[in-house]
Computed example of a mutant assay.
Amino acid sequence: MSQGDERGYGGNEPAGHTDDAYSTLGGTRQTRTRLPRGGDEGDGYGRRPARNSRSLIMVVGVVVLLIAAIAFANQGGGGDTSGNGAEKATDAAGAGPTAATGTKPVQGRNGTIASGFAHDEQGAQSAAANYAVALGSAEMFDKTQRDGILDAVIAPASVEKFRTTLDKAYSIGFFRNVGLNDDGTAPAGFTFVSRTTPIGTKTTRASADQTTVEVWCSGLIGLAGEGSTKPVTDGWFTITMELQWVDGDWKALTHSQKDGPAPVGGDNRASSADEIAGAVNGFGGFTYAR
Rank of each mutant, 00 (worst) to 15 (best):
E41D: 02
E87P: 13
D247F: 02
F286G: 00
D234Y: 12
A273C: 05
Q145A: 11
R51T: 13
G173V: 10
S171C: 11
G285Y: 02
Q257F: 07
Q145K: 15
E242V: 13
P231K: 11
P263S: 08
L66K: 06
D40P: 01
D234M: 13
T204F: 07
G265H: 07
A92L: 10
G46N: 04
A273Q: 14
L25P: 01
G78T: 14
V213G: 01
Q122T: 09
S158W: 02
G200L: 01
P97D: 09
A157E: 15
L253C: 02
A224Q: 12
R32A: 06
Q107R: 13
F174P: 01
I154M: 06
V178M: 15
D20L: 07
P198I: 02
Q257P: 03
L253G: 00
N281R: 13
K168E: 13
A73R: 07
W236D: 03
W250R: 05
A270D: 10
Q122P: 04
L220D: 15
E226P: 05
L220K: 14
S126T: 14
K230P: 03
F192W: 15
A89T: 15
A86W: 01
N130Q: 06
G184D: 09
S82N: 08
T287C: 02
P198A: 03
L135H: 10
A86P: 00
M1N: 13
S2K: 11
A21N: 11
E160M: 03
D151P: 02
Y22C: 10
D182Q: 14
F162L: 10
E275P: 02
I154N: 00
K161R: 15
L253E: 01
T28R: 12
G102S: 14
S23M: 04
Y288T: 00
L25F: 11
G116M: 05
G4C: 05
D167I: 00
